[in-house]
Amino acid sequence: MPSAARTGGAVAEPERFATEPAADDGERTIIGFFCRECAYAAADATGNARVPLPTTVRSVLVPCTGRVGPLHVMSALAEGADGVFLAGCLEGQCHYREGNLSALDRIAFVQRLLESVGVERERVQMFTMSAADSPRFVAATKRMHATISALPRLERR
């Protein structure tokens, strides 16, 4: 078993898993970073209730939205996502005090970064909800899907 490999100061290049690239059928790809305590719980509750959701969203579990930085969001966009959203706890109710507030500020930062190079800022958003609030999670998902579907696919070099 490999021991903890720490490449000092550098970010390890992610390995790409070899599948054939998906045919461009106009379907958008949206990556969602969901916090374990609230949003992912709301997502599970939504699933259990069999609420139909658009297939564009792929979820990534993080312990807290505070774990997500500009690098993760920007990499998602660079590697093929047309939109990225964060879903975390309600303001004032983060299980780790104020992680969600840091995440909100970082999303604002990424939005400004995108704007400065001519990319639509609404490709990146953050929503807050409580673990019991499945309707809010559904609303966030659908809203993101609608927003991104209305934008052209994000082109990348």
């Binding site: 992610p14 898993f17 790809t29 792929r58 774990r67 993760h72 998602a76 093929g80």
Partner: peptide
């Protein structure tokens, strides 16, 4: 880094899902 949620792990997941 965070055990189980390092940048490498998250980015691997993100890249392959995008």
């Amino acid at each position: 880094t965070l055990g189980g949620f390092s940048d490498a792990e998250i980015l691997a997941e993100v890249t392959a899902r995008a």
